[in-house]
C-alpha cells in the first residue's frame, strides 16, 4: 500500500477539490462518461506500465489503436458477421506489433524509443497505403454496447479494463512473472545471471502492451462509433503521463500498475473537470500542464523523502 500513498492521496485531494469547484463532475451521467473514457486510457496504461517496468517505452500504442479501428471498419463494411473474426485479427495485429517491438529492442538492441516510433511509422504507413487516407467502412452496431451499455452507470468496457487490471496487478505483485519483470527492469545483467531470459520477459511485456492497445482500440471504436483513422492520436503520451503520475519510473523496475491506473484516473478527471469548467481552451491546457507538473514533482519529492 505504501507505493500507492501518493497517487491515492492526490486523487483524494483532487476528488475533494472537484466536489467544491465542479460538483457537476459527480453527476451519474458525467461519471458514466468518465468511466467510458477511463476504460480506454486504463487499458493502454496497463500495457505501457509493463513496458516501462522493463525500462522500455511504447510509442506505437496509438498506431495499434488506429489499426484496430481500420481492421474493424473494413472487415465489417458489408458483412457484420465478420465482427468476431475482425476482433481476433485486431488482437493478433496488436500482438504482432508488440512481438516485433520486443524483438527489435531485445535482440537488435534498438533503443525502445526508436523501435516503437519506427513501428508507428510502419503501421501508420500501412494504414495509409491500404486506405489512401480515407478509410471506408462502418463500426458494427453489435460492437457498440461494449462501450455504451453496462450495469447501471458502469459500462462493460470498464469492467473489462478493471478485470485485466486486476489480473496484471495479481501477476506482478505475487507471481514469478512479476518478479522477473521487475528484475529485468532493475538490472538486466543481474537478471541474466540468475537465469532469467531477459529477451522472453521483454518480448512478453511488449506483446501484452500491443494486445492491450488493440483491446483499447476496439473499445474506443465502439465508443466513438464512427470511422476516424486518427482515433488513437493522443494515447501514446497520455498513457505515459498516466503511468508517470502514478509513480512508474522511466528507468524501469519501479512502480506499480495499480498506481498507474490511479494516475490514469487522476489525468482523466483533470481533463474532464477542465472541460466542464468551460475555461478558455488555452487556459485549460495551462491548468492541465501545471497540475500534472505539480503532481509529478510532488511524487518525486515524497519518493526522495521516503528513501532518505
Amino acid at each position: 500500500m505504501r507505493g500507492y500513498g501518493l497517487p491515492v492521496g492526490a486523487t483524494a485531494i483532487v476528488a475533494a477539490v472537484i466536489a467544491v469547484v465542479e460538483p457537476g463532475f459527480y453527476r451519474p451521467a458525467n461519471l458514466h462518461v468518465v468511466m467510458q473514457q477511463y476504460a480506454v486510457l486504463g487499458l493502454v496504461t496497463i500495457g505501457q506500465v509493463l513496458v516501462l517496468l522493463v525500462s522500455g517505452i511504447d510509442l506505437s500504442v496509438g498506431a495499434v489503436m488506429n489499426a484496430a479501428l481500420i481492421v474493424i471498419a473494413l472487415m465489417n463494411h458489408y458483412n457484420e458477421n465478420l465482427l468476431l473474426l475482425s476482433l481476433v485479427l485486431c488482437i493478433l495485429l496488436g500482438a504482432g506489433v508488440g512481438v516485433t517491438n520486443g524483438l527489435l529492442v531485445s535482440l537488435r538492441d534498438v533503443p525502445p524509443f526508436a523501435a516503437t516510433l519506427g513501428m508507428t511509422a510502419c503501421v501508420q504507413g500501412a494504414i495509409l497505403v491500404y486506405t489512401l487516407g480515407i478509410p471506408a467502412g462502418n463500426i458494427p452496431a453489435a460492437l457498440r454496447p461494449v462501450a455504451l451499455d453496462g450495469i447501471g452507470i458502469v459500462p462493460y468496457s470498464l469492467l473489462i479494463c478493471l478485470a485485466i487490471g486486476l489480473i496484471v496487478v495479481a501477476f506482478l505483485s505475487r507471481g514469478t512473472y512479476g518478479r522477473m519483470i521487475y528484475a529485468v527492469g532493475r538490472s538486466p545483467e543481474v537478471a541474466r545471471r540468475v537465469g532469467i531470459s531477459t529477451t522472453t520477459v521483454r518480448v512478453s511485456a511488449y506483446t501484452l502492451c500491443g494486445i492491450f492497445a488493440a483491446l483499447a482500440g476496439i473499445i474506443l471504436s465502439a465508443y466513438i462509433g464512427y470511422v476516424d483513422p486518427a482515433i488513437g492520436g493522443t494515447y501514446n503520451l497520455q498513457s505515459i503521463a498516466a503511468a508517470v503520475v502514478g509513480g512508474v519510473s522511466f528507468v524501469g523496475g519501479e512502480g506499480k500498475p495499480a498506481g498507474a491506473l490511479i494516475g490514469a484516473l487522476f489525468l482523466l478527471a483533470l481533463l474532464n473537470v477542465t472541460t466542464l469548467s468551460s475555461l478558455n481552451p488555452f487556459a485549460q491546457l495551462i491548468v492541465q500542464g501545471v497540475v500534472m507538473l505539480v503532481a509529478v514533482s510532488l511524487f518525486h519529492l515524497v519518493k526522495r523523502g521516503s528513501f532518505a
Partner: peptide
C-alpha cells in the same frame, strides 16, 4: 467552450459527451 477538437471526430465526441453529461 468545451475545447478544441483539432479537426478530430473522436476528440470532438469525447469533449461533447463530457459537456452533455455536465447537466
Amino acid at each position: 467552450n468545451a475545447g478544441n477538437a483539432n479537426y478530430s471526430i473522436s476528440t470532438a465526441k469525447q469533449l461533447a459527451a463530457t459537456a452533455i453529461a455536465s447537466g
